[in-house]
Nucleic acid binder design. Structure first.
Length: 495
DNA sequence: TGCGACTTTTT
DNA sequence: AAAAGTCGC
């Protein structure tokens, strides 16, 4: 008997570690609520996690088994849990962030001390962080070269889904865990295990989020993938930047929680690619490749974080003199509330609060606005996204923020500053996205909305009295941002 | 080692 | 058209 520990892989299908364990004999699936991980969680992500776990548990139940739900420090609880269910090996899939690697090293040692075998698998990405390197043997810091190697490499097929007979029967799990849920033999007082019983957010010290977090679980993920690959993917390149068109995959949260496997996902895109190629339609082919590039970006940033765990808090690219952020607390608050007086920015920030999601193009716009119009440290934005995004992923969000702030690997140059009005006009010309999230502007002509910054205060008060005045002047702030970065580079801003 | 190339732009 | 700089071959 083996114990499989789910972490960011809340699925039975295409799960490399689980399949390996099932191939050897019976497996029991478990999830541990680690207090150290919960310390970094948020209302939104706890809700989303619990939804994913409920779906996973139901998938186990459909096969006559159940999910073991433990609470406590994995280092103390996993050896005891392995003992309680009589497992001789604990198996999991690798997680590549710094915190996760520290945790896993501790768990490895604890299991070793208890004489329990352990095994970690390569599952979360198609190509592991160490496996794609420059010809000189270094990790890549430029995406395009990374992509070339990533896309040329052979990929694994999806891992087989365990059959009902591979999973430990629910009756045996209940018998092993016992009535009180306390783990036997010297575990910490607070360590508890239940069979299929999930805690509520309140049990874990969290509130119900204000946002709707969206569907969870493998079935929902597969439905989403099928819908996307049925047609939208073939016009992805032309459509993806228009937030009102909802032309993106919306797979991010499913991938973050591992409710669908990357091999299964990629294989499905390969089928779409082959279909487009056989039609000989270049635009459709390029669109599928464009989407595959997004999967490669996910792995690019995974390997950036793996090789540079300090980027979570530090600039990847340090400026000689350091950046002196303006960090005005009132301006940052206006940004988080979606009250900047820049319609596309406010729409994005409000979508985030309402849906725990933001369209990718708009993420770039609000990130550029925070760093280069408000001159606020990207860490403020990263922290806010981490609290409110259901799909928050350390590697991707950190990579995105450092890209926007011109401090990252392959970041945009510091002088590349988005114009929030131009962006709104170009990517939401009819202001459909804007008015969906900014009710104060409903009923106005799109032209008027895109000219908001140019109207006089009197005009603004007349047409939309409830909507804020622009809190900054973009042209002025653009010059200030250029000067800020030049000083950080040790240059004279006057030149 | 010289050089082509570099996610998402702006004025 | 120009705003830099440097990565990777």
């Amino acid at each position: 008997m083996e114990l499989f520990c789910h972490r960011r892989d809340l699925r039975l299908a295409d799960n490399v570690g689980l399949a390996a364990a099932a191939d050897r004999g019976e497996v029991a699936g478990a999830f541990v609520f680690d207090p150290d991980v919960l310390d970094h969680a948020s209302d939104v992500r706890v809700r989303r996690l619990l939804d994913g776990l409920a779906a996973l548990r139901d998938d186990y139940r459909d096969r006559g088994s159940d999910l073991l739900v433990a609470r406590g420090d994995p280092e103390s609880i996993l050896p005891d849990l392995a003992d309680a269910v009589d497992a001789d090996r604990v198996v999991w899939n690798r997680d590549y962030s710094g915190l996760a690697r520290e945790r896993d090293a501790g768990v490895r040692k604890a299991l070793n001390d208890s004489g329990v075998e352990r095994e970690a698998h390569h599952d979360a990405v198609l190509h592991e962080p160490d496996s794609i390197r420059t010809n000189a043997g270094d990790p890549y810091s430029v995406y395009t070269y990374y992509w070339k190697k990533w896309t040329d490499r052979e990929t694994d097929s999806p891992a087989p889904t365990p059959a009902a007979g591979d999973l430990v029967d629910v009756g045996a799990l209940t018998a092993a865990v016992g009535d009180d849920g306390a783990v036997a033999d010297g575990g910490a007082e607070t360590d508890r295990v239940a069979v299929g019983d999930l805690p509520s957010p309140a049990d874990l010290g969290f509130d119900a989020p204000d946002a709707e977090v969206g569907p969870a679980g493998t079935e929902a993920a597969r439905g989403r993938l099928d819908d996307f690959l049925d047609e939208p993917v073939f016009s992805y390149e032309a459509e993806r930047d228009y937030p009102a068109r909802e032309a993106t995959s919306r797979l991010s949260a499913f991938l973050k929680y591992g409710e669908i496997g990357i091999r299964e996902t990629y294989e499905a895109t390969e089928r779409a690619l082959a279909a487009a190629q056989s039609e000989g339609d270049e635009e459709r082919v390029e669109s599928v490749e464009e989407f595959q590039q997004q999967l490669a970006w996910r792995e690019f940033y995974t390997q950036v974080l793996y090789h540079n765990p300090e980027v979570v808090t530090e600039n990847y690219k340090e400026y000689e003199e350091g950046i002196e952020w303006r960090d005005d607390p009132d301006e940052i608050t206006a940004w988080t509330r979606g009250e900047t007086g820049y319609p596309i920015v406010d729409a994005g920030m409000r979508q985030l609060r309402e849906e725990a999601f933001m369209h990718n193009r708009v993420r770039m716009i609000v990130a550029s606005f925070l760093t280069k119009d408000l001159l606020a440290d990207w860490r403020h934005g990263y922290d806010h996204f981490r609290e409110h995004l259901a799909d928050h992923d350390t590697a991707n969000d950190n990579g995105g923020w450092q890209w926007a702030a011109s401090t990252g690997t392959d970041a945009q140059p510091y002088f590349r500053i988005f114009n929030p009005m131009t962006q709104g006009e170009r990517y939401d010309p009819e202001a459909e996205y804007i008015t969906e999230y900014v009710p104060e502007l409903r009923g106005l002509d799109a032209d008027l909305i895109h000219e908001w910054h140019e109207l006089s205060p009197t005009q603004r008060a007349n047409v939309a009295p409830e909507y804020p005045e622009p809190i900054v002047d973009h042209s002025e702030r653009r010059e200030e941002a250029l000067a800020m970065y030049k000083r950080a580079r040790g240059e004279d801003p006057e030149e």
